[in-house]
Computed example of a mutant assay.
Amino acid sequence: MFTARTTTGISILAAAAVGTLLVGCSASVEVKKSTPPKLSADKLAGTLSEKLAAVSGQPKPHVSCPEDLAGKVGTTLRCTLTADDGSTLGITVKVTSVSGGRIHYDFKADDKASPATK
């Protein structure tokens, strides 16, 4: 029983630490041209997962995004990182610029993780 609580606590702390490390992170992705360009939810989640792993030095976390990201400056989208124990951490993605088929965006994880739901 103690081990389960320790593991949950460590997972939540790790998720919160990732959030702290992500202040001001940004990325850009080339997408198929459309008007406006769109980045698929799966590709965005994959890119965020890779960036989070690189920043935290941890394995790629599971990230999901509810919809495609429209390449329009100012557009925001909320994605979710889910830890192995089921706790979650929100990630806000905001489009900062679009040049041709490339969408540039910033992302920031929430300061606090939400515990796993039972």
Rank of each mutant, 00 (worst) to 15 (best):
F2C: 13
F2Q: 13
T3W: 13
A4E: 13
T6I: 10
T6M: 15
T8V: 10
T8C: 14
S11L: 06
S11C: 12
I12F: 12
A14Q: 11
A14S: 09
A15V: 07
A16V: 08
A16P: 06
A16R: 09
A16K: 07
A17S: 13
A17L: 06
A17G: 08
A17D: 15
V18G: 14
T20M: 12
L21I: 05
L21G: 11
V23E: 15
V23Y: 15
G24K: 12
C25Q: 15
S26L: 03
S26Q: 11
S26K: 06
A27P: 00
S28D: 03
S28T: 02
S28N: 14
E30K: 05
E30D: 12
V31H: 07
V31S: 10
K33Y: 14
K33H: 15
S34V: 05
T35E: 15
T35K: 02
T35P: 02
T35C: 04
T35Q: 10
T35W: 11
T35D: 07
P36C: 02
P36H: 13
S40R: 05
A41R: 06
K43M: 03
K43G: 07
L44Q: 00
T47C: 08
T47H: 13
T47N: 13
L48Y: 14
S49R: 02
E50M: 04
E50K: 01
E50H: 10
E50Y: 12
K51E: 11
L52W: 13
L52Q: 02
A53F: 14
A54F: 15
V55N: 09
G57M: 04
P59I: 03
K60D: 14
H62E: 12
V63R: 00
S64D: 09
S64H: 11
S64T: 04
S64L: 00
C65L: 02
C65P: 04
E67C: 06
D68T: 02
D68A: 02
A70D: 14
A70N: 12
G71Y: 12
K72I: 03
K72D: 11
V73P: 04
T75L: 01
T75Q: 14
L77W: 07
R78Q: 15
C79P: 01
C79W: 04
C79R: 01
L81R: 01
L81Y: 14
A83F: 07
D84W: 09
D84N: 09
D85T: 06
D85N: 08
S87P: 03
G90S: 08
G90M: 05
G90P: 02
T92P: 04
T92H: 14
V93A: 13
K94W: 12
S97K: 08
V98N: 05
S99G: 09
S99M: 01
S99N: 08
G100N: 01
G101K: 02
G101S: 13
R102E: 14
R102I: 05
R102Q: 08
R102V: 00
I103L: 03
H104K: 09
Y105D: 04
F107L: 01
F107S: 03
D110Y: 04
D110H: 03
D111L: 09
D111M: 12
K112L: 10
A113Y: 08
A113K: 03
A113V: 01
S114F: 11
S114K: 00
A116F: 12
A116Y: 07
A116C: 01
A116T: 07
A116H: 02
T117I: 06
